[in-house]
Design a protein around this nucleic acid. Structure first.
Lengths: 270, 270
DNA sequence: TAAAATTTGTACGTATGTATC
DNA sequence: CGATACATACGTACAAATTTT
């Protein structure tokens, strides 16, 4: 019998996630998106474990992780509960559930953004409700406040985190405004990868004021509902982070320009 | 002390996945994508467990699931090994790792496809390698063969599965042709949801020959590299499934047409 | 002052699944 | 390929803390 070659395909390793890690991530997700704000109290352990479909011990295990990370505070007693103490979420709490993406493929994330986000923003402009716009405005406000706080100052770690959070919240708000759960999911997958780029790139931002401006422009564009304006604002917002990343990483992105209909994507001169 | 309201936010339940289920899914993924074909032998248990980063018993547990599902066959001896016996993958083997998406939001999946796929196809046209085109052609061939086999016959379960598999493989091949790992991941997330729609809709397809034709058209369009042609082919391919789904489900999709180009977005009053 | 209600903290027994041999 | 040992999660129950009544 002739020897059948074992397939040349290589399988990527699976990373097993413990339920408590998933639970912890879900809670950070709610904080990241702005659904629960700093200082707020989460539901009781009983209610939470019921909502999340896990036992209370498992939930407590997750809370232990969050307390250790300084994200929440747990107080006993009748007026006690689980309180959000910080919006700075350590990177090791998130990013588990997804297959590993090599760091060298970071530009593929940026390319995917250019391909995906403009159209999401267009759809968001069509279906955004007042509360959606409210969430977007909140994200822009956070960016503005962070910007004001660090005006004429060296960008601290806290400032970088603030800008990152604002951008992430804005993107989530836009995705939700489409009223399309599938798109929200896809955006979350993308943002999980983005977080990595952002924390590395934000330090290299030439001017966080400019970053805030692009965020504000995107909001205005979506409010206007004009597709051309939306595309332009989205492109410049992504472009800003791309150049910051290039500066931080010390290498150029492949910068594959995504062709888009009859509209020529703006190419930066270099 | 004033009572602090527990947050009004509700958390979605988490679903825990066992390692062996993840492993089983990963193997089915390789089959679904066409990386390993029917009759082929997979690497040895030792090699596989090493590649996947799990212990051999865990892998064996996963294999047990696959054997039970009739997907693979495990033979002892020196010329034995793990062989793929079927490309029909029972739905309960996949789709675990993702948060539950209510069936009513099925049209959001279709909307996301309309938003995402044309641009993926355009990028694929720019970066596809000969082997990428080869994979696309293989998918089209599978569709053609399935079509021929069931010409003038009632569409059997097997035929429906074959058409579904061909479409899925085509989509994976196109996504891979972009040479962008992020886009491949996003496509996989989408396809996992699609599977559900497909198996329900394919039975209602008016003519599987027409379905094959749209697949062939998409391939030709990507080979031509013309954006307009690509958009048209992709749209008609998606449209065919949409109308089949409407027929199967007995209700109309919201059919939000994704505005493209200079078309003004209609604003909803609220 | 005391009791009741709410919420966290702790502990144990069971079951299941994984890893090692 | 099987068997044993270990880790993890669940369910339940009860104890402790704090505020309200």
């Amino acid at each position: 019998m002739k020897r059948i070659q074992p397939t040349r395909f290589v399988f990527q390793p699976v990373q097993l996630v413990r339920p408590c890690e998933v639970v912890a991530y879900r809670i950070t997700e709610a904080i990241r998106s702005g659904d629960v704000k700093i200082g707020e109290r989460l539901p009781s352990e009983q209610s939470l474990s019921a909502q999340l479909g896990v036992s209370r011990p498992t939930l407590r295990e997750a809370l232990k992780l969050l307390v250790q990370a300084g994200v929440v505070e747990v107080l006993p007693g009748s007026s006690g509960g689980i309180f959000v103490t910080s919006e700075r979420i350590p990177p090791e709490l998130g990013g588990f559930p997804l297959p590993e993406l090599p760091l060298q493929d970071i530009d593929s994330v940026m390319e995917a953004r250019r391909l995906f986000e403009p159209h999401v923003a267009r759809l968001a402009a069509m279906y955004a409700t007042p509360s959606d716009f409210e969430r977007m405005r909140e994200a822009v406000s956070l960016s503005e406040e962070t910007c004001k706080k660090f005006k004429n100052k060296k960008i601290s770690e806290e400032g970088a985190q603030g800008m990152t959070l604002a951008s992430t919240r804005f993107n989530i708000a836009v995705a939700r405004a489409t009223q399309n759960e599938m798109i929200v999911q896809m955006m979350e997958v993308m943002l999980r990868r983005m977080e990595m780029v952002r924390t590395m790139a934000v330090h290299a931002l030439p001017d966080i004021g400019l970053s805030t401006q692009t965020l504000r422009d995107s909001l205005l564009a979506i409010e206007s509902g004009d597709p051309v304006q939306i595309d332009a604002a989205t492109a410049s917002r992504i472009g800003l982070l791309e150049s910051a990343w290039e500066k931080a990483a010390g290498k150029r992105l492949r910068r594959r320009t995504v062709s888009r209909g009859a509209i020529a994507a703006p190419r930066r001169s270099h």
